[in-house]
Measured scan of single mutants.
Amino acid sequence: MLEGKVKWFNSEKGFGFIEVEGQDDVFVHFSAIQGEGFKTLEEGQAVSFEIVEGNRGPQAANVTKEA
C-alpha cells in the first residue's frame, strides 16, 4: 500500500488525483474508494491505496481514508 494526499477531487464528476511524494500524481475514480455511503475525498486528505494499470495508465485502487 502507498500513502498520499488528495490533490483535488471533483465529487460531481467522481474523480480526482492523489499526490505521492517522489512520484507522478495518481488518478482516482470514486468507485475505488472503500467504505459505505457517498464516496468522495477532500483536498489534502491523507489516503492509502494501491496502484493498478487502468485503460489510460496507472490509477488508484482500494483507496482508504486515513484517520
Rank of each mutant, 00 (worst) to 15 (best):
E12H: 15
F49E: 02
E66H: 15
F9A: 03
Q59T: 09
K5M: 09
E42F: 11
G57S: 05
F49T: 02
E53H: 10
A32Q: 13
W8K: 05
L41Q: 00
N10A: 09
K13A: 08
G57I: 04
Q45H: 06
F27K: 04
S11M: 07
V63G: 01
Q45G: 07
G54E: 07
P58T: 09
L2C: 11
D25T: 03
K7T: 04
N55M: 12
F17Q: 05
V26T: 06
E3V: 13
E43M: 13
F38S: 09
F30S: 11
A46G: 12
F9I: 04
E53C: 12
K39N: 07
K39L: 09
R56N: 07
V52F: 08
R56G: 08
G4M: 02
G4T: 01
F38K: 12
F15K: 04
G22T: 06
A32T: 05
S48Q: 14
N62Q: 11
I51F: 07
V47E: 00
F15L: 05
E50H: 13
E66F: 13
K5A: 06
N62C: 15
V26M: 06
N55E: 13
N10Y: 04
N10S: 15
K65W: 10
I33S: 02
L41A: 03
Q34L: 13
D24P: 14
H29D: 05
Q59A: 12
V63D: 03
A61Q: 10
E66A: 12
E21V: 12
S31I: 02
F15H: 06
S11A: 15
S48L: 12
N10M: 04
N10W: 04
G44I: 00
E19L: 09
G22F: 05
K13F: 07
A61I: 12
E12W: 15
I18N: 02
Q59I: 13
A46H: 13
E53D: 11
E3R: 13
N10K: 07
V28F: 13
V52E: 10
E50A: 11
F9P: 01
N10Q: 05
G54Y: 06
G22E: 10
I18S: 01
T40F: 13
F15A: 04
F9C: 03
V6L: 03
K39R: 11
R56L: 08
G16R: 01
T64R: 14
E50P: 00
L41D: 02
K65D: 06
E66D: 12
Q23W: 07
V6C: 08
G16I: 00
E43F: 08
V63P: 00
K65E: 07
G57N: 05
G4F: 00
E66T: 13
E21K: 13
K5V: 09
I18L: 12
A67M: 15
T40K: 10
A32M: 07
G22V: 00
K39V: 08
I51Q: 09
K65Q: 11
D24S: 11
Q34A: 13
V47H: 01
Q34W: 05
E42T: 11
H29W: 01
F27H: 04
D25C: 03
L41Y: 03
F30A: 11
G37K: 09
S11G: 07
E50T: 14
V26R: 02
K39P: 08
F27L: 05
E36Y: 12
T64H: 13
S48T: 14
N10R: 07
G16P: 00
Q23T: 10
G54C: 07
L41N: 02
A32N: 10
D24I: 05
A61G: 11
Q45M: 10
V47K: 01
G16N: 00
G54K: 08
A60R: 00
V26L: 09
I51S: 04
F38Y: 09
Q34T: 09
G14Q: 04
G16S: 01
P58I: 11
A46Q: 12
L41S: 01
T64A: 12
E66M: 14
D25F: 01
E12I: 15
Q23I: 10
Q59K: 15
T64E: 08
V52I: 14
F38L: 10
V47Y: 00
P58F: 11
K7F: 01
S11E: 08
G54Q: 03
Q23R: 13
L41W: 03
K7G: 04
G54N: 10
D24N: 14
K39Y: 04
V52G: 05
F27A: 05
G35N: 07
V52T: 13
Q23E: 10
F9Q: 02
S31N: 08
E42M: 14
G44K: 06
L2E: 09
Q59W: 08
A61E: 08
V26Q: 03
G54D: 08
P58N: 09
G44D: 09
N55G: 13
S48I: 13
F49G: 01
M1F: 10
F30W: 15
V63I: 05
E36R: 13
F15P: 02
I33K: 03
G35E: 15
E19Q: 09
E3W: 11
F49V: 03
F17R: 05
G57P: 04
A46E: 12
A46D: 09
K5S: 10
D25V: 02
V63M: 02
D24K: 15
Q59P: 01
K5Q: 11
G16F: 00
E42A: 13
V47F: 00
V52Y: 03
L2Q: 08
L2D: 04
F38D: 10
G22H: 14
D24Y: 07
M1S: 07
G4D: 01
K13S: 06
Q59L: 12
G4C: 00
G54T: 14
R56Y: 06
E50V: 10
K13L: 09
G37L: 05
E53L: 11
S11I: 14
E19G: 13
Q23A: 12
K65M: 11
W8V: 06
G54I: 04
V63R: 01
V28E: 02
G54P: 02
I18D: 02
Q45F: 03
T64K: 11
V28C: 15
T40C: 13
A46T: 11
K65T: 13
N62Y: 08
E50C: 10
Q23K: 13
E43V: 15
F15E: 07
H29F: 00
E19I: 07
F15M: 07
Q34S: 13
D24Q: 12
L41P: 02
I33D: 04
K7A: 10
W8Y: 10
S11L: 10
F49Q: 02
N62R: 12
G35Y: 04
A60D: 00
F38R: 11
I33R: 02
A61F: 15
V63A: 02
E12P: 13
E21M: 08
E36M: 10
E42S: 15
T40M: 10
F30Y: 15
S11F: 07
P58H: 08
A60S: 03
E3K: 11
F9S: 03
D25Y: 00
K5D: 02
Q45R: 06
E42Q: 15
F17N: 03
Q45T: 10
M1Q: 05
E43G: 14
V6D: 01
V20S: 09
H29L: 01
H29R: 04
E53Q: 11
E42P: 06
L41M: 07
F30D: 05
A61S: 12
G35K: 05
G22R: 09
